[in-house]
């Protein structure tokens, strides 16, 4: 699907420290997902009614934005490995912009709910919805900052090392992976 020169020995793509963080984050999200599922099971009608108030087109757009951004990050790493640092910088920048679009879109959605007077304490559904989405929102925000930082460094005389690039990429893909589960779970199921 994508051509990245594979290595002979199994190697972790990115820093071990980042992977420890990723596992921890996945664990947190995973527990919350399972808690959501359990709560859903107990209050099906409440959750269905809540889901009906969410905007699926906006969330679909967001999914595409994140997936595309992930693909761009992969391109950036390919470019960086080939030594095309400026090109990599643009790929990173593109991914960051898509991430920003996600944030903007999501913010509008959250703003809309807040205008309607909905908060974490409104109902069990909104607690989960707002809590999960906001927690993920913060992760995207962090990811965008990281990608922007990587992009900036690509245009500087001393480009970032591959370890940093792989690590940034791995974090971003984790954010993507979480959303890929979160979106169908909260919006569609």
């Amino acid at each position: 699907m994508l051509s990245i020169p594979s290595r002979s020995q199994p190697q972790l793509p990115g820093d071990l420290a980042v992977w420890v963080l990723i596992l921890a984050e996945l664990l947190v999200f995973g527990v919350f997902f399972l808690a959501y599922v359990a709560a859903f099971h107990g209050h099906v009608a409440l959750f269905r009614a809540g889901q009906a108030t969410l905007s699926i087109p906006a969330a679909t757009f967001n999914t595409l934005a994140l997936i595309t951004a992930s693909a761009l990050v992969v391109q950036a790493i390919v470019a960086l490995q080939a030594g095309h640092t400026r090109k990599a910088g643009w790929w990173f920048a593109g991914a960051a912009v898509l991430g920003l679009l996600f944030l903007l879109n999501k913010w509008l959605e959250l703003h809309h709910h807040m205008q309607a007077g909905i908060s974490l304490s409104t109902s069990l559904f909104y607690m989960f919805y707002l809590g999960l989405v906001f927690f993920h929102f913060m992760h995207v925000l962090a990811g965008v900052l990281i990608l922007a930082w990587m992009s900036r460094r690509c245009f500087q005389p001393r480009p970032p090392g591959m370890n940093a690039a792989w690590s940034a990429g791995a974090y971003w893909h984790m954010v993507d992976l979480v959303w890929v589960v979160l979106f169908p779970l909260v919006y569609l199921l």
Partner: peptide, 15 residues
């Protein structure tokens, strides 16, 4: 999810 893990995260060459 599997696609993301295998190709984006590039874990197919990981331990």
């Amino acid at each position: 999810g599997s696609l993301i893990i295998e190709f984006f995260m590039h874990l197919h060459t990981a331990p």
